[in-house]
């Protein structure tokens, strides 16, 4: 029987800290990009690393980090959520109306945003699993539908000047320095990482995104976990609404438009596979941070506005090229 004893591991590959080097590059790539980009721009334009600017970048990144963590789960489950911007706006206006027009105290009223987000996400999930509408189509439909409700409710009126409870998450700083929103964003990143690796929800989301048939054969209720990814996404869209509204201390019906593009870009830059099965929560966090840094850095370095778009496009292409290269190595 000795001849059957197999001791060779995965294909002969250089391993670093017990994992293939390709994995390590994937895992550490986004954070390395953040550090390198920050250092390079900081050397050229020292004000890039000034406290005020760093805080500005973190404020700007927080919303996208929160959204990107949710989107990581959705994409890992082989889904996509185009409606997040509209969910952000709808959960936002629901919260604003609750606080402005009901006697519910603000500290309680803010919970309307994440809770209503869960309901909107649940609807997305039900349309996709029960009505069998493809994820992309279903969430395009709700993107339009949810936005319609926002416009009906808010019209063109800007709501502004909210109580402290609303502003707390988006605008306050710990010790007058570190934005609460970025702490919350990183906490959500850490929570997302834990959930991805340690919970049944995380494991089964990856399984159903990686090989749906296999997940079904293993007795996993794939629809339930698919729905849960959208509920989680909706919840985080509500949190992102709180952060955005708190930061701007205002609400307008166009909030969140096109945020899905930047969020999906951040997730892709972070190394999550677009077709499911393989999520990188921390990658998404740093991907979102990198996107904000690139836009801000381009402004500080005096890039004309339209070139900033080109720059972000290049970042996405470079990131995806690297992952594709590593992925090709892995499967050959």
């Amino acid at each position: 029987m000795d001849k059957s004893t197999q001791t060779s591991g995965s294909k002969d590959e250089l391993h670093i800290f017990g994992r293939p080097w390709t994995y390590q590059v994937e895992r550490l790539g986004p954070i390395a990009a953040v550090i390198i980009f920050g250092a390079v721009v900081g050397i050229i334009e020292p004000r890039f690393l000034s406290a005020r600017n760093v805080i500005n970048v973190l404020y700007q990144a927080a919303t996208y980090i929160i959204l990107a963590v949710g989107m990581t789960f959705v994409i890992t489950g082989a889904g996509i959520d185009i409606s997040i911007g509209s969910m952000l706006a709808l959960t936002g206006i629901l919260m604003v109306f609750t606080i402005e027009y009901t006697p519910i105290p603000p500290w309680l009223g803010i919970w309307v945003a994440p809770l209503s987000g869960m309901v909107l996400g649940l609807l997305n999930g039900l349309f996709i699993t029960k009505l069998k509408v493809p994820d992309f189509i279903a969430t395009i439909a709700t993107m339009i539908g949810y936005r319609g409700v926002v416009l009906i409710m808010a019209g063109g009126v800007v709501h502004y000047r909210f109580p402290a409870a609303v502003r707390f998450l988006g605008a306050y700083r710990l010790f007058g320095l570190i934005p609460i929103s970025i702490l919350v964003a990183f906490a959500i990143g850490a929570l997302g990482y834990y959930v991805y690796n340690n919970t049944y929800f995380g494991r089964y989301t990856a399984a159903l995104g990686g090989n749906r048939e296999s997940a079904i054969l293993a007795g996993i209720e794939v629809d339930k976990y698919k729905i849960l990814t959208y509920v989680f996404m909706g919840f985080l869209a509500g949190v992102a609404a709180l952060v955005t509204i708190g930061r701007l201390d205002a609400f307008h019906a166009t909030y969140g438009e096109f945020m899905e593009i930047d969020t999906i870009a951040a997730v892709i830059i972070g190394g999550t596979a677009l077709f499911g099965g393989y999520g990188r929560v921390w990658g998404s966090v740093f991907g979102a941070l990198l996107m904000s840094m690139v836009v801000n850095g381009a402004v500080l370095l005096g890039f004309p506005y339209f070139y900033q778009y080109v720059l972000v496009g290049i970042v996405i292409l470079v990131a995806v090229s690297i992952y594709t290269f590593l992925g090709t190595r892995r499967t050959t």
Binding site: R47, R52, N56, Y59, L248, E257, F258, V295, L300, F306
Partner: peptide, 20 residues
């Protein structure tokens, strides 16, 4: 410093950049 008409958060970030 440009932005889309709905990118209120980007506009806010640009205003912060002015102070930097």
């Amino acid at each position: 410093m440009g932005s889309g008409h709905a990118q209120h958060d980007v506009q806010r970030s640009h205003l912060e950049t002015v102070l930097v």
